[in-house]
Every structure is written in structure tokens, then in C-alpha cells.
């Protein structure tokens, strides 16, 4: 098992100490009258990769969409970097430093790879910074460099996934939300994506990642939450959960 080199030599089984970058408290989110998230609390600390796992329909995407401001919670708070985000419209959340690569990629199919990346930096004005981030994204995903002028909708699913992650990085986020970044990818690409997520964290971006591929997600995660039908079922240091029998049974096919 490969171990990410953590600066703070934490004891096994204990979460790194540090300030919360994101704190979600007692979140309740509804679609009409249907409750999708029923009292979820979680936190993400600066410099962590936090993993959110759970079966289909558990409310993972709903949680991320609420953090990004696409959905309004019925009750509960979302505090990011000391500021409350509840009630702030979706397009303003990005400005606070939260970028999301949504479930199903949601790239702009009729635009080129380059235009998609530029849209990721829509709110930014620092030309030099944008150019540097573009450089960085293309270094992370050399495939995108080859396809820079191609219409995004004509790319393969894996390439589109890279673009979705790259586009989110173009916003220069403090917190990167990734919703199932490995969905539909070949095993080789899954490894690549997870390696890249670790690289992104090592370059200083905090990551909250939702995954179906629980094994891979728990391996790269620092801390993990398990969601089940809208409730928080379990939380703990990611590596410890890997050893947990009930987790192994339910999510790792053990």
C-alpha cells in the first residue's frame, strides 16, 4: 500500500489537528417534499483530502450541490473559511473559493477544451495567474493539451472527466469538490485520476471527494464520512475505515 507523505506525523487512527476550512452542521436538504439529506454534519480541514462515500441515492451529490449553492438547505449551516454560505446564490459561492467538478462531468460540449478551461476562470481577472493555472492543469493532464482545440463534446468520457477536474482547478479553489471523478473510467485512468487528486492536494488545494470507488477513495483520503439514505452512518480516519468490517462488507465488496 502506498502511503502519502504527510507533513504532520499523526498517530494512526487520529485525525490531523487543524482549523476547519469547511464546516457543515446538521444539514437538511429537500427536493420538494422528499428529504434527500437528513441532518448531515461534516468538516474539512485545511490541506486534507476528505472522502464521502455511500451507496446510490445516499445524498452525496445533494450535499455537494448544497455546499456549492445550487440547492438551498431547509435547515443547517455551511461555514466556509469563517463565513456562512447559506443563502448565497450558486454563482457567488465560486468567488469564495469553492469549485466543483460535478457528477456526470457537465462540461460545455459545444465549446473547445480551451474555452471550457477559460470558463473555469470566469470570475478571475489575474491574467498571469490564469495562464499559470492553465499551464498547471495541462501538466496534470497532458491529454488535454493534445486536445486543446477539440470540441469537448467529442472527447471520450475519460478525457471529459479530466476536463471537468481541470476546469474546476482553473477557478484556483481553496476547496475542490469532486463528485465521482472516476465514474466510467478505465482502471488505468482511475489510478491516474486518484494520483492527480493527491498531487492537487500536495500542491495546496483542499479536496472533498465523493466516490463510488470506495476502496480507491479511502486509500487516498485523510478522513472519511459514510452516508446512508441521507444520514451520516460513520466517520473516521480513512485508513481505519478500510479495516472496518461493516464498511468492507457494504462498500468494498468484501
Amino acid at each position: 500500500m502506498s502511503t502519502p507523505t504527510d507533513a504532520a506525523p499523526a498517530q494512526p487512527g487520529v485525525r490531523k489537528a487543524g482549523e476547519d476550512l469547511l464546516t457543515v452542521t446538521d444539514l437538511h436538504v429537500y427536493y420538494g417534499n422528499i428529504a434527500a439529506v437528513k441532518g448531515v454534519s461534516l468538516s474539512v480541514k485545511q490541506g486534507e483530502i476528505v472522502t464521502l462515500i455511500g451507496s446510490n441515492g445516499a445524498g452525496k451529490s445533494t450535499t455537494l450541490r448544497t455546499i456549492s449553492g445550487l440547492l438551498r438547505p431547509r435547515t443547517g449551516t455551511v461555514v466556509f473559511d469563517g463565513k456562512s454560505l447559506v443563502g448565497i446564490p450558486g454563482h457567488k459561492v465560486v468567488g469564495h473559493g469553492i469549485c466543483q467538478s460535478p457528477e456526470g462531468r457537465r462540461i460545455f460540449p459545444k465549446m473547445t477544451v480551451e474555452e471550457n478551461l477559460e470558463l473555469g476562470a470566469f470570475l478571475r481577472n489575474d491574467k498571469a495567474g490564469i495562464a499559470a493555472d492553465k499551464e498547471r492543469v495541462l501538466d496534470l493532464f497532458p491529454r488535454l493539451k493534445e486536445r486543446i482545440a477539440q470540441k469537448a463534446g467529442t472527447m471520450s468520457g475519460g478525457e471529459q472527466q479530466m476536463l471537468a477536474v481541470g476546469r474546476a482547478l482553473m477557478g484556483s479553489p481553496k476547496l475542490l469538490l469532486l463528485d465521482e471523478p472516476s465514474m466510467g473510467l478505465a482502471p488505468v485512468l482511475v489510478d491516474l485520476i486518484f494520483d492527480t487528486i493527491r498531487t492537487i492536494r500536495d500542491q495546496g488545494t483542499t479536496v472533498l471527494v465523493v466516490e463510488q470507488n470506495a476502496l480507491a477513495a479511502l486509500r487516498i483520503g485523510d478522513y472519511a464520512y459514510v452516508l446512508e439514505s441521507g444520514h451520516l452512518k460513520q466517520e473516521g480516519v480513512a485508513r481505519e475505515l478500510l479495516k472496518d468490517d461493516s464498511i468492507v462488507k457494504a462498500y468494498l465488496g468484501g
Binding site: 454563482h91 468567488g95 457537465r106 460545455f108 465549446m111 477559460e118 470566469f122
Partner: peptide, 18 residues
């Protein structure tokens, strides 16, 4: 640019800050 993005995917456009 914002118009074209919104035309293709409103939620994705929101996630860009549009």
C-alpha cells in the same frame, strides 16, 4: 461567453460563477 455557457448547461454555468 456566459450566454453560450448558460445555453449549454445552466447548473454548470453557475458552478463557473456565471
Amino acid at each position: 461567453k456566459a450566454m453560450r455557457a448558460v445555453a449549454q448547461d445552466q447548473d454548470a454555468a453557475r458552478l463557473m460563477g456565471i
